[in-house]
């Protein structure tokens, strides 16, 4: 009798176990499918929309990498090659020269090279750049805005939640398809900017 009772209890337990296991498997499958309906085959990476960026300087401080994986990028296509460069020189610089007293960049990460009268090329030395956006603000206010910030994917960890995206006041950082990982001005301007505008409308 007791054996029978015991085996019955065991059977019942087994039944419950299997039932629960099935339920869990089903709910897991359910959640899986719900999420799977919205999967992207390709991966996504974080990137800054230079047209939304307000040059607040948080990219330098909040990135999980030190120095930040955000660097200034120079879209040469848009550059005016100005002698009086708002991104290179302090706004009230005494001379238009390369001396430290005139340079805006705190780490001297912009190289100024004479091309021909009166044009100069500006190149970013990425090892020195800390992504503080000082030059970006200068170039955007006084120049063509050819200097702008981008997340460099050879440095970026591609965190699950980007620490600078979280603190970006302009919501300029979002996930983009890994197949088009950059929003470099010039290429990015023509279509995408218009698209964003029409969406807003």
């Amino acid at each position: 009798m007791t054996d029978q009772k015991h085996s019955k209890t065991m059977q019942r337990r087994d039944f419950i176990q299997t039932g629960m296991r099935l339920t869990l498997a089903l709910s897991l499958g359910g959640i899986g499918t719900m999420a799977a309906l919205k999967t992207a085959k390709g991966d996504t990476v974080w990137q800054i929309d230079p047209f939304k960026c307000v040059q607040c300087g948080r990219c330098a401080d909040y990135c999980v990498k030190t120095p930040s994986a955000v660097k200034c990028v120079h879209a040469y296509d848009l550059c005016g090659y100005c002698d009086l460069c708002g991104g290179y020189l302090k706004p009230d610089a005494i001379a238009q020269a390369t001396g430290a007293e005139n340079q805006l960049c705190p780490t001297a990460a912009i190289k100024r090279k004479f091309i021909e009268e009166p044009y100069f090329e500006y190149e970013i030395v990425e090892d020195l750049c800390i992504g503080c956006a000082k030059c970006v603000a200068g170039c955007t206010s006084f120049g063509n805005g050819s200097l702008h910030l981008q997340i460099r994917h050879d440095l970026c960890d591609n965190c699950n939640e980007c620490a600078i995206a979280r603190v970006c006041p302009a919501d300029a950082i979002s996930r983009v398809p890994a197949s088009e990982p950059y929003k470099i001005k010039g290429d990015f301007t023509a279509n995408n900017k218009d698209q964003t505008q029409s969406r807003e409308e």
Partner: peptide
Amino acid sequence: PQPTVPDPR
């Protein structure tokens, strides 16, 4: 010159 675009992983 053109700005470099290192690929993500």
